[in-house]
Amino acid sequence: MSSVADPEAIINAFVKTIRPAFISTVVHAAFSASLFALFVVLLALSTKESRCCVVFPLNVFAICIVLKMGVLLGFSEGKVAVGRPYWLSPNIPLAGLAFTLFPPLLCDSILLIRLFALYPLSSTRPATLLKIFAFPFCIKCARVVILTLFFNKYVGSATTAEGLAQSEDSTWFCNPYMVAEWTMQIVDTSGK
């Protein structure tokens, strides 16, 4: 018996280990590139009047936040793909998670702000404004609470970069907080 392991088994185990991180890195790079193209088009096709609207800087801010999320997640998943997750500070994956969880809420809030163009505060009765904005505001508050609870639980359960990767794989799609968040996000965006 030889003490040398089968090279094919070693390669297969390595590929199985890095495959999720590699796929995630490629997906984040593709979406970040398309978002960067959207950012360039937004700036190129905007007029002076449209840049003065409140929604324009909010859209630019949301795109910048999501681009930062793509860079953070690409960086942390790229480190895992090359087999060096211990080079990461535990704060980098946590920052990536925060930038993953909260930008959808920001983008949905920007969509809600656009309703003020249809129902200006100066010409709409307070009762009408209350009917229009009460439900979305309550849903957004509930989403913030759910996301904060999930983030606190995630931070409490993971202490290292390797622990973060393991806990993300095991709890992300089965976590009741995330299922509740996704359900509320569907309700929130379908109401507009």
Results as ranks from 00 to 15, higher is better:
residue 4 V to Y: 00
residue 6 D to L: 03
residue 8 E to D: 04
residue 9 A to Q: 08
residue 9 A to W: 01
residue 9 A to G: 01
residue 11 I to P: 04
residue 15 V to L: 12
residue 16 K to V: 07
residue 17 T to E: 15
residue 17 T to F: 08
residue 22 F to W: 10
residue 24 S to W: 01
residue 26 V to M: 02
residue 29 A to M: 04
residue 29 A to Q: 05
residue 30 A to G: 12
residue 37 A to S: 07
residue 41 V to L: 15
residue 41 V to Q: 06
residue 41 V to K: 01
residue 44 A to V: 00
residue 46 S to C: 05
residue 54 V to F: 15
residue 54 V to K: 03
residue 57 P to T: 08
residue 61 F to C: 08
residue 64 C to R: 05
residue 67 L to E: 15
residue 68 K to E: 07
residue 69 M to S: 14
residue 72 L to P: 05
residue 76 S to T: 09
residue 77 E to P: 03
residue 79 K to A: 01
residue 79 K to I: 11
residue 90 P to F: 04
residue 90 P to L: 01
residue 92 I to G: 03
residue 93 P to L: 00
residue 100 T to M: 14
residue 101 L to F: 11
residue 102 F to P: 10
residue 102 F to H: 05
residue 104 P to R: 04
residue 105 L to H: 02
residue 105 L to A: 10
residue 106 L to M: 11
residue 111 L to S: 05
residue 112 L to R: 00
residue 113 I to Q: 09
residue 113 I to K: 11
residue 115 L to E: 14
residue 117 A to F: 15
residue 117 A to Q: 15
residue 120 P to C: 08
residue 124 T to G: 01
residue 126 P to T: 11
residue 127 A to T: 03
residue 138 C to K: 12
residue 138 C to N: 11
residue 139 I to M: 11
residue 148 T to K: 09
residue 150 F to C: 01
residue 154 Y to G: 02
residue 154 Y to F: 13
residue 156 G to C: 07
residue 157 S to A: 09
residue 158 A to I: 03
residue 159 T to K: 11
residue 159 T to P: 00
residue 166 Q to K: 01
residue 172 W to R: 11
residue 172 W to N: 05
residue 179 V to M: 12
residue 185 Q to S: 09
